[in-house]
Computed example of a mutant assay.
Amino acid sequence: MKYQPPYTITPEILNRVAAISEAIGRLTVLTDQARALRLRRINRIRTIRGSLAIEGNTLSEAQITAILEGKRVIAPPREVHEVKNALAAYDQFDTWKPSSEKDLLEAHRILMSGLIDETGLYRHGGVGVMAGQEVIHMAPPADRVPQLMGDLFGWLAATDAHPLIASSVFHYEFEFIHPFADGNGRMGRLWQSLILARRNPLFVDIPVESLIFEHQAEYYQAIQESTQKTNSAPFIAFMLRMILDTVTSSTPEVAPEVTPEVRLLSVLAGEMTRQQLKEALGLKDDEHFRKAYLLPALDAGLIEMTIPDKPRSSKQKYRLTDKGRQVMARHGGGKLATDSRHGL
């Protein structure tokens, strides 16, 4: 008999699946591609920050943004390394198949490279799931892991359950098995996102992990309750609530907060030269500054040249336009840049 994870489809679960599907449908109608790409960027940062924060990583969104931009960050080396690994893993996200055990092992290798010895390999010893200082679950013996994971992947490949449900079941079963020596939490959340993304690409960067981090005690409680009941319905219901809350709050309007052009506006005081702007942003590479910050701000009409007829003039400076001032008013003036520099 083929393996069948024990779970029950409750009315609460069905209602949340329907609500999430409706909300995703509304997000799918986004037509402004540039805004959608900016949303993807901020949500990926939030996703990585949330998932690593659950595991104890203290880096802020501003620091992760800086690492993404290749800037130096003053923080514990291990935490910086975790972020770089996560960024590298998400760069490979589109190449992995949810039902491929080989891809799961490769994802673990990338995500945990340089952090533990057994990367890309199932564990060889016993492990437990911790909630603070409390052991809430002792995982199955290591010698059972390959068979249990094989059964789980076999079920995932054959199931006709809705991806919202199947991904939550997989996530719970994965955490129950706890197949790796370390990194199981972030891997379980990553793989649920992968399963969902094959249903709809918008799920790639919807930052569910941020909400899970805010409800971390409930996350562990849902795992524990599902284990006690030998039924993952409590965990499914919890995850669907997190997904629904995240989807309904993932709107394009939040995207400009971390875009380079908005960061440029936040340091622009009066009239400033290119060099002054670059230094104020803490950037060294002139070409990166021009392409990622200056030109987008000019193209969007957020800043203007003081000598527009002579764009290459050595006396050229830049100042905010009315549109740029309106954008900064919505973002609290120069607060964004101050916070970003403080976070680094």
Score class of each variant (00 low, 15 high):
I110F: 04
E82P: 01
I110G: 08
D143F: 14
A158R: 15
T119S: 07
L111C: 10
K97N: 14
W96R: 13
V129Y: 03
S168Y: 03
V83G: 07
W96A: 12
H171D: 14
F93Q: 01
V80H: 03
R144P: 01
L164F: 02
M112C: 03
Y122T: 09
L121G: 08
G114R: 10
L115G: 03
P98C: 12
I136A: 04
R109T: 02
S113E: 15
H162M: 02
P77D: 04
F93Y: 05
S99I: 09
A88R: 09
V80Y: 03
M138P: 00
A86N: 08
V83I: 09
H108R: 13
L148V: 11
M112K: 13
F93M: 00
A131V: 00
Y172H: 15
T159C: 04
T95P: 01
D94A: 11
H81Q: 12
R123V: 05
Q147S: 08
I136S: 05
H171S: 12
G120A: 11
V135Y: 00
P98W: 12
P141Y: 08
M138L: 13
V127R: 11
Q133M: 07
S167P: 10
G120W: 05
P140Y: 07
D91G: 04
E79A: 12
D103K: 05
S167K: 11
A161V: 05
K84Q: 15
N85I: 02
L121Q: 15
G114C: 09
L111K: 09
R144E: 14
A166H: 13
T95H: 14
H162I: 02
P141M: 08
T95E: 13
